[in-house]
Every structure is written in structure tokens, then in C-alpha cells.
Design a binder for these strands. Structure first.
Lengths: 250, 250
DNA sequence: CGACTGATTGAACCAGCTCAACTCATGTGG
DNA sequence: CCACATGAGTTGAGCTGGTTCAATCAGTCG
């Protein structure tokens, strides 16, 4: 089973190189993620101006968009691919604080330094803005700022959910919640499906859930044994979402 | 040793009933927390109007300001006291996602429902706004919205730090980081001091750090044995902040 | 004083970690 | 085409940091 076959939309997942009906270089008007990104609130006329301060950039698998603590001279609108956002401790321990999907904005807080590092999980296409220019653009457009704020509110709510997960949930619950959460997020940008691509590796999942790679692996094989999921290359197929929801219950 | 003696400013901590040079009812102009709250960006003329849609409310120890999932008809600017923000699971497990201190804004995201519950840890004085009225007020004042967004960015950064703490730090590191973090936050609203009031109980600290009450207690007594802190009624005195910083190192 | 709440301490236990071996798929070069 | 290396994932066995359960202590309040 190759990756594409478990994907509803072949653009979601590692094989995105095959498709280029994303933004490419045709500007904001043709941007596939615009409706559900922060830009979605801009009127056609405003997009022209935004287009002038934006620049499409491609990042290969494992490339770093920006590092933890670095001056935030750029902010990004993710157009295609998956990005991991993480914080590291000096001894190498790592916590992934989120996976950014197409439509997500990186650097939402508009702070002068990035609090987290951002690394391409898959090949990635992102729309980059110089931070100063973007802030300047936003200042004159309260409706965009309002939308940025709404996005920040959503991020904050997700962060709070994740705190509950990290602090108070068991390994089983963590993995179940992770699968359902990712499925529902994919659902916002593609058709909902029981076939769930997992472009990130087991180590990434572990670092996201506050577990070890071994525990993630064991939990998934246990779910597979119990016919709750099927593990396929590049992802999983969810067989019993009811059971997962019961595990992840909040 | 009573509480006041370990406090630099007697207004910080459980004994705040003794002092009422907070906002009281004299309006925004006299508000003690205004400079470092979201309101700090408003011009005197704007404050008059804000004053008209605000209402001072007092909450006793343990009173609930709003519940998780409830419609967010009110948003709050905390004037005095400490509030715990938490999420609960159906089986009673609880994760405190933050402690709000004077100057903090509750309901920053302006979402239509509260994602967390808010409960008074100490007696609390808060400035309440009807959400609709407040949003309306904000819409016409981009500089206030910008400030709200900056606050949201700070909250998000704190949430990400907390995720790293919950997912990847040991009990010792968690407690050390908690003490230092709280000290530095108090420092923003009062003079920095090695005397640190802990108005929240051990269970609250445990639920904030993703530990049990026993582990928090054991860790604090261990720190005390090692002459890193002194545990006093109502708080702790930090003896060796260097050591705490080494433990909490990020 | 007794009752109650919050905090501490002790001892046994266990969920998840650590360490280590092994599998499997992919790629590479001879 | 095979030999071999490489990296991601899986599985096993033993260990341990933090939990659980239970008892005790220390204020505080009526």
C-alpha cells in the first residue's frame, strides 16, 4: 500500500511533490489555503498589496524554517506540507509543541523572537513575509489583526488541551487523542477520512505526546492487535473511532 | 511568621483584604494594575468610555468566575488576587493551565465559549466586561486589539514553556521552574523578592505541574533539607536561586 | 477541646522508561 | 544481482521515578 492510497487528497502527506495546484507562484488569488488561512479575510484589492510583500519559499524535508530564540525577521503562512514546532533543552530533550498544517501561520504572536524552532517534516511550501513589513501591513487593517487574534485564540485553546494531555493523560489516551486530533485537523483542509497519513516519524509523535518512541510504537501495535487501527506505511487507518473517542474523552 | 512578613508588597498574597489601594470603585484612572494590563494602552479619554462598560466584582476564595465550556458572556481584567485556570476530565483529573495574577486578562481570546474554568484561589477583585460590549469597544480601537494580541502572544509563549515542562521535565525541575517562574511574575507587579508567597495549595501546584500532591510535598521538603528553600506558612523563601536556575535550565 | 482541612511521611507498586537486540525497507556500490 | 550499510520501527526484559494507598501531623476554627 503506497502513501497515496491512504490519502483522500494526495496533497496531504509526503507525496505532495506530485501535485502543484497549491499556490505555486500564481499569487494570492490562486492560493489553495487562502480561505482557511489568516489571508482569507482580505479583500481582493488588499491581496495585491500583500502579494508584493510576500515571497514563496520551498523547504526540503528536514530543513529548518527558523530556530528557537532566533530573531523573528520572517513570519510564514504554510501553504503545503507539515512543519514541526518544538522547544529543546540543553541536554537534548525535545518537546514538540505542535504540528503546523497548510493554512497555519507561523509567528502569529508577532513577537521579536521565535519562541520555538520550526522544521519541515515533509517538503514544505510556505509564504514568507518580512516581519516588519507584515506588521506594518497589519497595523492598517484591523480586520486582519482581528483574524490573527482569532487564530491566536485557537492556538491558545489547542495549547491548553495539550497541557491537559501532557500532564494528566495516560499513554493510551495520549495516542488516541493524537490520532483523532490529527484526523480532525486534516478534515479542515481535505475531506475527512478514516485513512490518516502520519508524515511525522514515531520520534516526533513521542516528542509531541511526552512519551518515548518505544511507548508510542507499543501503543500503536496494541491498538492494531485490538483492531482499533491498522498500521500502514506512512500512516494508519482508523477502524474504531468510537473506541478512540472513548479513550480520548474530555 | 505570618504571611505579610514574607511579602514585599502586602497586596500580593492571601492577606490582601487589609489593603484597598487597588482599583476599588474609583474607576480606571486610579486602577493600580492599569499600567501593566491591557488597559494600559488606552488614552485618558478612552478610559471614561471603558469605565462605563466595566463593573468591579469581588469573588471570595474558591468562588468560580466562569466554568469550562460555558458561554463567555463576560471577560475579566484581574485587579487583585490570584485565579486558577484549569481543565478537567470527566473522571476528575484536573490540569491547571495557569495562575492569573493582577493585571492578567481572562477571556483574552474573545472566543464565544470559555475553554477553561476560572476559580478564585484567594479573594479576588476583577473588572468585568460584557463580552459583546467589550468586543464592540475593541473593534474601534486597533491599538487596544494590538495590545490584546501581544498579551495573547505572551500567553502562548508561556503555554509552550509549560508544554516543555509537562512533557519533558522531571519532578525536581518542574518544582524549581515553578518557583522561579512565579517569582519572576510577581516581580512584574511588585518588587522582586526571595520571599515567595504561594497562595495556592499543594494540590493546585501538583495539578499545574502534572504531579501528585505527595510528590510536590516531598520535593519541597527535599529542597528544604538541601537548603535550597525554606518552607514557611503561606509560601517559601528562596535561598539558592542559582541552584534552582540550574535545575530549571532551559 | 474535637473536628476538619491541608500538608507531610512511609512503604509498596506500576506505567512508562531504559537498554538492547532484532526486523524490515531502502539505497548504494561493486 | 547480491552484499552490505543505513535508518526507522518493533519487541523484549528489567528498572525506576513518580504514583498509590495509608497513616500521621499541624494548624485553624467553632
Amino acid at each position: 500500500m503506497d502513501n497515496a492510497s491512504i490519502l483522500t487528497d494526495p496533497c496531504v502527506g509526503p507525496k505532495r511533490s506530485e501535485c502543484d495546484h497549491a499556490r505555486a507562484d500564481s499569487g494570492c488569488d490562486e492560493c489553495r489555503v487562502r480561505p482557511f488561512s489568516v489571508c482569507g479575510v482580505l479583500r481582493p484589492g488588499e491581496r495585491v498589496e500583500l502579494n508584493r510583500i510576500s515571497q514563496i519559499r520551498n523547504y526540503a524535508h528536514k530543513a529548518m524554517l527558523f530556530d528557537q530564540g532566533a530573531p523573528a525577521d520572517g513570519v510564514f503562512n504554510l501553504v503545503d506540507g507539515v512543519v514541526r514546532l518544538y522547544k529543546s533543552l540543553p541536554d537534548g530533550r525535545r518537546q514538540i509543541v505542535g504540528f503546523a498544517l497548510p493554512g497555519d501561520f507561523l509567528g502569529l504572536a508577532l513577537l521579536d523572537r521565535h519562541g520555538v524552532a520550526a522544521e519541515a517534516v515533509t517538503d514544505v511550501q510556505a509564504c514568507r513575509f518580512a516581519r516588519a513589513a507584515f506588521i506594518n501591513y497589519v497595523e492598517g487593517r484591523p480586520h486582519l489583526l482581528r483574524r490573527m487574534h482569532a487564530f491566536a485564540g485557537r492556538e491558545l485553546a489547542m495549547a491548553q488541551d495539550q497541557m491537559l494531555l501532557l500532564g494528566r493523560r495516560t499513554a493510551n489516551e495520549k495516542v488516541a487523542a493524537f490520532l483523532l486530533h490529527l484526523q480532525s485537523r486534516y478534515g479542515r483542509i481535505a475531506a475527512m477520512s478514516v485513512n490518516l497519513p502520519l508524515p511525522m516519524g514515531r520520534q516526533d509523535i513521542a516528542d509531541y505526546l511526552g512519551l518515548t518512541i518505544e511507548t508510542v510504537s507499543r501503543t500503536l501495535t496494541k491498538f492494531a492487535r485490538e483492531k482499533i487501527v491498522v498500521v500502514v506505511p506512512g500512516g494508519v487507518r482508523l477502524l474504531n473511532t468510537d473506541w478512540l473517542e472513548k479513550l480520548a474523552a474530555a
